[in-house]
Simulated scan of single mutants.
Amino acid sequence: MQIDVELFTVKKRFPLTISYGTTTQTTNVWVKISEDGIEGWGEASPFSAGGNPQTTEIIQESLQKIAPTLEKFHPSQRQEIEQILIKANLPSSTQAAIDIALHDWLGKRVGLPLWQMWGLNKNAIAPTSVTIGINTPEAAKQRVRKWLEYADIKVLKVKLGSPEGIEADKKMFLAVIEEASVQEVFVDANGGWSLADAIKMGNWLGGMGIKYIEQPLAKGRETELLELKQQQPLPIFVDESCFHSIDIPKLRNYVDGVNIKLMKSGGLTEAMRMIHTARACGLQVMFGCYSDSVLTNTAAAQLSPLADYLDLDSHLNLINDPFCGAILHEGCLCPNDLPGLGVEYRAVSA
């Protein structure tokens, strides 16, 4: 099979600030795998969660190194290819791009969308949240208004963990709630709270109808989650603390759910394992994203009937996404009926 790599830069309509930084644009990697006259597409986007940044340069270099090894395989040999990728210790984003492209190729080969190949029910897809980053109360209210003007939004995710402390978090959160008219609100601290602050915030948020708090404590402090769980009422989900299926059994007594992202997991193959592992451990499942285009979020949407919660909104905040695929309909990101991912290219201005 032939592997081609192309870089593209996506720019955010609104900068996104979370507890450990602000993002305005990223340069992502488009991977194309060709065989038998069929081309499968995948994407790798850079991210820094977990303490080991996966930059565009690292991703591109790893793809260039592994491509000659993979050329002798056929895209249908996914099990063998996966073992090659694991042994090469490639960045998870690189693995994700290749794995997504292989799935896209297979779907196109058999003429079916992935959700249908897996026998999933598109009517079971939950609404996706859209994100309100850390900001001043007034700026956060303006961001809510912009989202509600943009589309039929049902769910908000509010980023807390402000460097200015939990009083700033409270002021911003109250401003968002005052402005919002949505069905549900999630909270994500991105590890920005101490245990004491997380307990305070969990109890403060507990009476406001919040569905869960995500990653209240930093990665590496997972054992403190049990104390947090016992001293506040909200369900706890983890993101930065959970990359792969092997991480989930160790977390089962500390949390209520896990956030699965294709860039963390290494693609759809491992994401499916994570879903089944989480269910076997009695945990809930959500899907999230980084600065992914609609290509990656459409790939995740193919699996989304299996998730309890969705946060697949990154492409909605891009002004120059080069792809079109899953469509936001009544608050839900729905894949189409085209084969494979169902993603198409569209020319956009920079």
Results as ranks from 00 to 15, higher is better:
Leu7Gln: 02
Thr9Ser: 12
Thr9Ile: 09
Pro15Val: 09
Thr17Cys: 06
Gly21Phe: 09
Gly21Thr: 10
Thr24Arg: 15
Thr27Tyr: 15
Trp30Phe: 11
Ser34Tyr: 12
Glu35His: 14
Ile38Trp: 12
Ile38Ala: 10
Glu43Trp: 15
Ser48Cys: 03
Ala49Ser: 14
Ala49Met: 09
Gly50Cys: 07
Thr55Leu: 06
Glu61Asn: 14
Leu63Val: 04
Leu63Thr: 02
Lys65Gly: 01
Ile66His: 08
Ala67Lys: 14
Lys72Leu: 02
Phe73Asp: 00
Glu80Trp: 13
Glu80Ile: 10
Ile81Gln: 03
Gln83Trp: 10
Gln83Thr: 04
Ile84Ala: 04
Leu85Arg: 07
Leu85Met: 14
Lys87Asn: 08
Asn89Trp: 02
Leu90Tyr: 14
Pro91Cys: 08
Ser93Cys: 15
Gln95Tyr: 03
Ile98Glu: 03
Asp99Leu: 00
Ala101Ser: 01
Val110Cys: 02
Met117Thr: 06
Trp118Glu: 04
Asn121Lys: 13
Ala126Asp: 00
Pro127Val: 04
Pro127Ala: 06
Thr131Arg: 09
Gly133Tyr: 11
Gly133Gln: 09
Gly133Ile: 12
Ile134Met: 03
Pro137Trp: 10
Glu138Ser: 11
Gln142Asn: 11
Gln142Thr: 08
Val144Gln: 05
Lys146Phe: 07
Ile153Leu: 11
Leu156Pro: 07
Leu156Thr: 02
Val158Pro: 11
Ser162Asn: 05
Pro163Ala: 11
Glu164Ser: 07
Glu179Trp: 01
Ser181Gly: 04
Ser181Phe: 09
Val182Leu: 12
Val185Lys: 15
Phe186Ala: 04
Ala189Tyr: 07
Ala189Pro: 00
Ser194Tyr: 15
Ser194Asn: 13
Leu195Cys: 00
Ala196Ile: 09
Met201Cys: 04
Met208Ala: 06
Lys211His: 12
Lys211Asp: 01
Tyr212Leu: 07
Ile213Arg: 09
Glu214Arg: 14
Lys219Asn: 08
Glu222Gly: 03
Glu227Val: 14
Leu234Arg: 15
Asp239Ile: 12
Cys242Asn: 10
Cys242Ser: 12
Ile248Leu: 05
Lys250Trp: 05
Asn259Tyr: 11
Met263Ala: 04
Met263Asp: 07
Lys264Glu: 01
Gly266Glu: 03
Gly267Gln: 05
Ala271Met: 13
Ala271Leu: 10
Met274Glu: 03
Ile275Ser: 03
Thr277Ala: 03
Ala280Glu: 06
Leu283Gly: 02
Tyr290Val: 00
Asp292Leu: 05
Ser304Gly: 07
Ile319Asp: 08
Asp321Met: 03
Glu330Thr: 07
Cys334Asp: 00
Cys334Lys: 09
Pro335Ser: 13
Pro335Thr: 14
Asp337Phe: 01
Asp337Lys: 14
Leu338His: 07
Pro339Tyr: 15
Glu344Met: 08
Val348Ile: 01
